[in-house]
Amino acid sequence: MNLAGAASRLGPGDGGARSPRTDAIARFRYDMVFLAPPWPDIYEVNEDRPHSLEKALRDYERVQSAYLQAGYDPVVLPRETVPARADFILTKIPLIAFDLEQSPPNRPS
């Protein structure tokens, strides 16, 4: 789970106002965020996913809201196969080439 997902589990927001959890999400920024909404046609409850579709939809809305409150413009993944989703993500992210034997380039804070 990512920071927005963890922060959104702390409870309902306060009507869109900034809170310590959304401030934390805003402080530890990602360049881009992707969301995979629950897909009713293929959703199933199992050992790895014990909650209902309704709960998954509520959780998704809470995570999406946390990202929006933090100033992100989340990119929603299409309802496609896993390879198609991976290709979609690769078309969206900037690829940075660097020598794998060296440390990755520093990101501005």
Rank of each mutant, 00 (worst) to 15 (best):
E80S: 12
A66C: 08
L35A: 10
I93S: 03
G13T: 01
R18I: 06
I96N: 04
T22F: 13
V63I: 14
D87H: 11
A86N: 12
I96T: 06
D48Q: 11
L35N: 10
V63A: 11
D48Y: 06
I96A: 03
Y30E: 11
R9Q: 15
M32N: 00
L57Y: 00
S65E: 14
A26K: 01
Q64N: 09
A56I: 07
S8V: 04
L95T: 08
A97L: 10
D41E: 15
I42W: 01
L90G: 09
D87F: 10
R27V: 09
Y30S: 15
V63D: 04
T91L: 08
L90D: 10
D87A: 15
G16C: 06
A84Q: 15
T91R: 13
G15R: 04
E47L: 12
Y60N: 14
F98G: 09
L57H: 05
K55P: 02
A17H: 09
L95P: 00
R62D: 13
A24V: 04
V82R: 07
P38R: 04
V63G: 01
R79F: 07
L77C: 05
F28W: 13
T22M: 14
P20G: 13
S19E: 11
A66D: 02
D87Q: 14
S52D: 11
E54T: 07
S52V: 01
D99Y: 04
P74T: 04
P78Q: 11
P12H: 05
E47K: 12
